Simulated assay, not measured.
Amino acid sequence: MSGSPRLPDELFGIYVHWPYCAKICPYCDFNVYAAKSRDTSALEAAILKDIEGYAAGLTGRTLTSLYFGGGTPSLCAPSFLSEVIETSAVQFEPDGDIEITLEANPEDITPERLKAWKAAGVNRLSLGVQALNDDALRFLGRNHTSDEARKAIDAALNVFPNTSIDLIYARPGQSIHAWLEELDSALSKGTPHLSLYELTIKEKTAFAKQVEREQFIPLGEDEQADLYIETLKLTAKRGLPAYEVSNHARSEDYCSRHNLTYWLNGEWLGIGPGAEGKLELPDGRTTTIAEQRVPDYISAVEERGTGSAETFSLTGIEAAEEAVILGLRSKRGVDRASVEARLGAPLNARKLESFTENGQLLEEAGRISLTEKGWLLADYIAGEILP
Results as ranks from 00 to 15, higher is better:
residue 146 S to H: 04
residue 386 L to G: 03
residue 91 Q to W: 10
residue 102 L to Q: 07
residue 1 M to T: 04
residue 206 A to C: 10
residue 72 T to W: 02
residue 173 G to L: 06
residue 59 T to L: 11
residue 283 D to V: 09
residue 87 T to G: 02
residue 347 L to M: 11
residue 183 L to P: 05
residue 361 L to K: 00
residue 180 L to P: 03
residue 259 N to R: 06
residue 258 H to A: 10
residue 333 G to M: 07
residue 159 V to A: 12
residue 9 D to E: 15
residue 273 P to K: 10
residue 320 A to F: 07
residue 194 L to G: 01
residue 2 S to R: 15
residue 237 K to S: 12
residue 293 R to Y: 09
residue 181 E to D: 13
residue 274 G to I: 03
residue 63 L to H: 09
residue 330 S to K: 07
residue 219 L to I: 14
residue 324 V to D: 10
residue 339 V to F: 11
residue 330 S to G: 06
residue 118 K to V: 02
residue 252 E to S: 14
residue 97 D to N: 12
residue 235 T to R: 00
residue 372 E to P: 05
residue 10 E to D: 14
residue 274 G to K: 07
residue 23 K to V: 10
residue 43 L to S: 07
residue 242 A to R: 03
residue 179 W to C: 06
residue 117 W to M: 11
residue 296 D to R: 06
residue 346 P to T: 10
residue 273 P to T: 12
residue 45 A to E: 10
residue 36 K to I: 11
residue 252 E to V: 08
residue 305 G to M: 06
residue 301 V to H: 03
residue 143 N to W: 13
residue 56 A to W: 07
residue 36 K to N: 14
residue 341 A to W: 01
residue 134 D to F: 03
residue 281 L to G: 03
residue 307 G to R: 00
residue 220 G to K: 06
residue 373 K to H: 15
residue 128 G to M: 06
residue 387 P to Y: 00
residue 111 P to K: 04
residue 27 Y to K: 13
residue 324 V to M: 10
residue 377 L to G: 06
residue 268 W to S: 02
residue 383 G to D: 07
residue 191 T to F: 08
residue 60 G to A: 05
residue 263 W to F: 08
residue 316 G to W: 10
residue 195 S to I: 08
residue 95 D to N: 11
residue 307 G to N: 09
residue 213 R to H: 13
residue 302 E to M: 05
residue 146 S to P: 04
residue 49 K to C: 09
residue 158 N to H: 15
residue 18 W to Y: 13
residue 47 I to G: 00
residue 55 A to G: 02
residue 135 D to V: 07
residue 237 K to R: 13
residue 82 S to F: 11
residue 202 K to G: 01
residue 358 N to M: 15
residue 249 A to D: 00
residue 383 G to M: 13
residue 185 S to M: 14
residue 57 G to S: 12
residue 67 Y to R: 07
residue 66 L to V: 09
residue 170 A to G: 04
residue 303 E to A: 01
residue 162 N to A: 12
residue 364 E to S: 13
residue 66 L to C: 07
residue 229 I to V: 15
residue 364 E to A: 14
residue 317 I to M: 05
residue 141 G to S: 08
residue 148 E to K: 11
residue 243 Y to N: 00
residue 372 E to S: 12
residue 44 E to A: 15
residue 240 L to P: 03
residue 287 T to W: 01
residue 346 P to G: 01
residue 359 G to P: 08
residue 48 L to S: 00
residue 248 H to K: 06
residue 49 K to H: 02
residue 127 L to G: 04
residue 245 V to Q: 02
residue 56 A to N: 05
residue 94 P to L: 04
residue 202 K to P: 01
residue 324 V to Y: 02
residue 314 L to C: 01
residue 199 L to M: 15
